[in-house]
Design a protein around this nucleic acid. Structure first.
Length: 450
RNA sequence: UCCCCGGUAGCUCAACAGGCAGAGCGGCUGGCUGUUAACCAGUAGGCUGGAGGUUCGAAUCCUCCCCGGGGAGCCA
């Protein structure tokens, strides 16, 4: 049986003059003993006199090619002259070799440069400062640790979609251009919309509340924008949010849904992205242990006590700051729900606890290892009178929210939902310290390019 | 918006108390038949972020500006 029969995913656009089948590096183990073509970029070269080594990456992995003077016409010389990040097409015999990190390497027979850079590649195989790397983000993406992060991101997003598809949620959309804010406190990016003020959406939630009354169970994954001048490892001005909203779902079911989702995504990544996590030196068992059920829960009031006992100064009624979240994160060592926040620090649309009108029927999910809040969710206000009262209490003008109030006018039902920060989740899964590496082109305070 | 740190070769950083601007990596040249960010030898590479000031003399001290990093608040 040939490798091609094992794996059909070969590249197809090969001309008639082409030699061995072009395959991706991640499939090479299926092709031991066969001649294949790899197309990619030079990640590095080494030489030991009469033997030269060429490291090629193609987005799916890295493989080392070996050439000697008798390897093939011009191959030895070509490898000697290729600079880092040259684009190449190489053909060779796949060999199993214990010395190779991936278990296989390539005895090269033919080395065809596709593009040979004339200038020195700015990113050398050594440590660089963050500022320099961010200025070269368009190239930094090719880095040995950047590629697996983006692959894990893809895996996490795929797992989210699959989770909701399995549960028969409908994927839908919310607008990016909006005329009102979702949460009055947050700063919005304003734009000129044909002479009328408009904003970039900071959340699709209000719209999902409308959509869920049409479709029952909905979710969306999209970009949202926060114009806060935050300058920390946990903030981006443009980030992706997964939001879900379910009709007839109440607080308890909401938390269960969130917990199931986070567990599903973490297990998927731990099981399907072992190679990527290994490059990132992230132990999948840490993730699997973290998401064992059930996630601990703590009431806000108790969380405050716990935080104060740990020596972090905070008042009842204040929101959880970063140091407070770190205390909870360390104390539980797993994702933890903080429930029943005081209404004063939560937005107007949250329903209040039946037994405690001063508490919102909500929960934040704090990720382990100091990654901060990855989910904020709540059961929503479902009567017109309550909503109007809470809008007034929050000092929010009613007019722009007339349509939102309408949702409570016709067939209003109990409903709940949440928003999950994609980059924070990906950063946690990967074990990387800063959100900026969890998205291809991060937007931050003072960083709009590349 | 506030607090802290930094800006010297392509990159990462040295340069004591103001006194000849240096190293490693990367590049280039040469050597080595199994290297894993290989190793060895040689070589090129600088308006010390900008403007002003103090001084016989400034990378070094002072003022302002620009840029970057870390953190806080707020949030996901």
């Amino acid at each position: 049986m040939t490798g091609a029969a094992v794996c059909e995913d070969t590249m197809s656009d090969r001309g008639p003059e082409a030699g061995a089948a072009a395959v991706y590096i991640e499939q090479l183990a299926h092709y031991v003993g066969e001649r294949v073509t790899i197309r990619g970029w030079v990640a590095g070269t080494r030489s030991s006199g009469k033997v030269r080594f060429l490291i090629v990456r193609d987005g799916t992995g890295l493989v080392q090619g070996v050439v000697t003077a008798d390897s093939g016409p011009g191959a030895f010389e070509a490898v000697g002259s290729l600079p880092i990040e040259a684009a190449v097409e190489v053909e060779g015999l796949v060999r199993a070799d214990d010395r190779a990190p991936g278990g296989v390497e390539l005895s090269l027979g033919r080395v065809l440069p596709v593009h040979v850079p004339e200038e020195e590649y700015p990113i050398a195989p050594k440590e660089h400062g963050v500022g320099f790397l961010m200025q070269h983000r368009h190239l930094w993406l090719r880095g040995r640790k950047q590629v697996p992060v983006l692959r894990v991101r893809d895996g996490a997003l795929w797992a989210m979609r699959r989770f909701f598809k399995e549960r028969r949620f409908v994927a839908t959309e919310a607008p990016i251009l909006v005329s009102t804010s979702v949460e009055g406190t947050t700063t919005l990016f304003s734009i000129d919309y044909f002479g009328q003020p408009a904003y970039l959406s900071q959340s699709g939630q209000l719209y999902l509340e409308a959509t869920c009354a049409a479709l029952g169970k909905v979710y969306w994954i999209g970009p949202v924008f926060r114009a806060e001048k935050s300058k920390t490892r946990r903030h981006l001005t443009e980030f992706w949010m997964l939001e879900a909203e379910v009709a007839f779902l109440e607080h308890e079911g909401n938390l269960q849904l969130q917990e199931d989702l986070v567990r599903y995504v973490a297990q998927y990544v731990a099981e399907e992205h072992g190679d990527d996590l290994e490059v990132l030196e992230r132990d999948p068992n840490v993730l699997l242990a973290a998401v064992k059920e059930p996630f601990p829960r703590i009431a806000y009031a108790d969380a405050v006590e716990l935080v104060r006992c740990a020596g972090v100064d905070m008042e009842h009624g204040e929101d959880l700051g970063a140091p407070a979240e770190d205390v909870l994160s360390r104390h539980f060592g797993r994702p933890v729900f903080v429930e029943r926040f005081p209404i004063g620090i939560k937005p107007f649309y949250m329903k209040r606890c039946a037994d405690a009108p001063a508490c919102a029927l909500c929960a934040d999910l704090i990720a382990p290892e100091g990654y901060g809040e990855i989910i904020g969710g709540s059961q929503r206000v479902d009567t017109q009178a309550e909503l109007e009262a809470q809008l007034a209490e929050a000092g929010v003008p009613q007019d722009p929210y007339a349509w939102y109030v309408d949702l409570r006018r016709w067939g209003s039902v109990p409903h709940a939902g949440f928003g999950l920060g994609v980059e924070r989740t990906v950063a946690w899964l990967c074990g990387i310290p800063h959100l900026r590496e969890a998205i291809p082109f991060p937007r931050m305070l003072d960083r709009l390019a590349p």
